[in-house]
């Protein structure tokens, strides 16, 4: 517009605040200064962000006697992994990791499958009841989970299931029942996110497939689903964390201590009378590991998937 913009993007990039979405890739001093400022800001923010966690890590590396004597805000007399070892064995963590994964992984996969199916249908086909259906799912996710505890408990108490699915003979006190509840609850949210995502995928893609004679299922499985990988990865991370971290449903629906998920193993670590905060810190960091691992693994997927579409300059 004005003649000042003669140099085009570079000029504006140079004068932009760091928040502008424009990445200057030119080695001009001004750009470099800007980059420096950006890194400083992000670095500081990250430091503030991770400080609480590091503080817990620090506590977990110190012995009880050390902190009891010197307080937490002090230099360590020595750092040790003893708390981690103790938490690992005394809370029987491996057993509970397994319990939790047996609930979390099936629940996660079924949730993603169901929600992508529904999202595919409502975003690709113009049913009259689309809106109602989406509301049914989305609003279902909005319900405070506590609201359905009592009816679900009763339902599960009365529903017999074959013994290969539940050794209690009922949905109650079975991990299968817990999976069902998680799937029912989380499908709503995932459907909502995925249908929004799928709507941005051009219809021409499925229509082309249809013209080629692809069945509805193939359109879903071979055309749409691969394109949703970033969204699925992002949802996978979130949902894994949510389902993994649930403790409420376990309290309501699991009645055998040995079937409890890891969140409750941690409760026994903190003790009824006496709490060794350093030990609890170590234990809770250990329980957080799987969600962190899933995050780092899937992050590649979704960030990678996302960046593929944007080789922008």
């Amino acid at each position: 517009m004005t003649s000042a913009v003669g140099v085009r993007p570079k000029k504006s990039a140079g004068s932009l605040p760091p928040g502008s979405g424009l990445g200057g890739k030119h080695d001009r001093p001004r750009d470099r200064a800007l980059r420096g400022a950006l890194h400083t800001f992000l670095g500081l923010t990250c430091l503030v962000w991770i400080a609480p966690l590091l503080w817990a890590v620090y506590a977990s590396l110190r012995s009880y006697d050390d902190t009891a004597q010197h307080g937490y805000f002090s230099l360590p007399s020595k750092l040790t992994f003893a708390n981690f070892a103790k938490a690992w064995t005394s809370a029987d963590l491996p057993h509970y990791y397994l319990n939790t994964l047996l609930i979390t992984i099936p629940a996660l996969l079924i949730t993603l499958l169901f929600s992508s199916l529904v999202a595919f249908c409502v975003s690709r086909f113009n049913f009259k009841f689309n809106l109602a259906l989406l509301m049914l799912f989305t609003a279902g996710n909005l319900l405070p989970q506590q609201v359905i505890i009592v009816p679900i408990y009763r339902l599960f108490l009365l529903t017999p299931v074959p013994s290969w699915l539940s050794d209690s003979g009922y949905l109650l006190d079975s991990q299968f029942g817990l999976v069902l509840v998680h799937v029912a609850f989380q499908t709503g949210f995932c459907t909502f996110v995925l249908s929004n995502y799928m709507k941005t995928i051009p219809h021409e893609l499925t229509e082309a497939a249809r013209v080629d004679g692809a069945s509805v299922f193939r359109q879903y499985w071979q055309v749409i689903l691969p394109l949703c990988r970033p969204a699925l990865a992002a949802l996978g991370t979130l949902e894994f964390a949510w389902i993994y971290n649930d403790f409420m449903w376990a309290i309501v629906l699991i009645q055998t201590g040995d079937k409890m998920p890891i969140t409750s193993a941690l409760a026994s670590l903190s003790g009824q009378f006496f709490t060794d905060y350093n030990l609890v810190a170590a234990g809770s960091l250990l329980t957080a590991l799987p969600s962190l691992i899933v995050f780092f693994v899937l992050q590649r997927q979704f960030i990678g998937g996302l960046t593929l579409g944007s080789t922008k300059g």
Binding site: N99, L102, P106, I110, S166, D167, T256
Partner: peptide, 21 residues
């Protein structure tokens, strides 16, 4: 998915080893 289905089916049996009940 298949693995997951397998795990889902195996879950209670595995847990049953834990005792209790």
């Amino acid at each position: 998915l298949l693995t997951a289905a397998g795990i889902a089916a195996a879950a209670p049996t595995l847990a049953a080893c834990g005792g209790g009940g």
